[in-house]
């Protein structure tokens, strides 16, 4: 069973936190800090499994993680999960994100927290692996999209009309934002 999924960047800033057991805000942040301490000092070519991490679990728990460009993806799992299986699940998650966001990068995770959660929800449910087949996952997400579009089309029209007027030049606005340089995650296929 997966106890928690953490995604943070090379500086330890959380980008996605999903706990399958309740922790208070403070504990969550502490877990992120501790986990970051543990993984950030490891070389890229050492093994992807890690024991330790006193806050979550204890002896039966392991951290299984992958490092892609600027982001760490960390799954905290107990011994009922296959280590390599989870490692591949991380890969499936990232590949799915990559398909959904077309060359996913850290910014996508920041600006679309809700979407990322929904995608994750199709892979992992309540700490258990729900679906591992990427085309199935993408299919479900497309269905969600369709629903979203329909609903947006009918009832959100007035609200969207207003917001459209308010921000005529929104795409440009976003592009103009000053952002730190973030290498894309798209080269993940040769990351190893």
């Amino acid at each position: 069973m997966i106890k928690a999924i953490l995604v943070f960047n090379n500086h330890g800033k959380p980008r996605l936190l999903k706990f399958y057991q309740h922790y208070s805000e403070e504990q969550q942040q502490q877990i992120v800090r501790e986990t970051f301490q543990l993984v950030s000092k490891r070389d890229d070519n050492v093994c992807n499994f890690l024991e330790g991490g006193t806050l979550i679990g204890g002896n039966d728990y392991r951290l299984i993680y992958r490092h892609y460009a600027t982001l760490y993806f960390i799954f905290c799992v107990d011994s009922s999960e296959s280590e390599l299986g989870i490692l591949d699940l991380i890969q499936v998650f990232v590949e799915t994100l990559d398909r959904c966001f077309e060359n996913v990068c850290e910014l996508d995770l920041i600006f679309h927290v809700d979407k990322v959660h929904h995608i994750l929800g199709e892979l992992v449910m309540g700490g258990m692996v729900l679906e591992t087949n990427m085309s199935e996952i993408l299919l479900r997400i497309q269905e969600q999209e369709k629903l979203e579009k329909q609903e947006a089309g009918i009832s959100a029209a007035p609200a969207r009309a207003v917001s459209a007027v308010k921000s005529m030049n929104l795409p440009q606005q976003i592009k103009d934002l000053k952002l730190p340089d973030l290498p894309g995650l798209s080269n993940l296929k040769n990351a190893f």
Partner: peptide
């Protein structure tokens, strides 16, 4: 157009950008 990016919520995007520019 990427499948998911879709039409974000403007207020949200602005708020996040603000935070990041802090």
């Amino acid at each position: 157009m990427p499948a998911v990016k879709g039409d974000g919520m403007r207020g949200l995007a602005v708020f996040i950008s603000d935070i990041r520019n802090c």
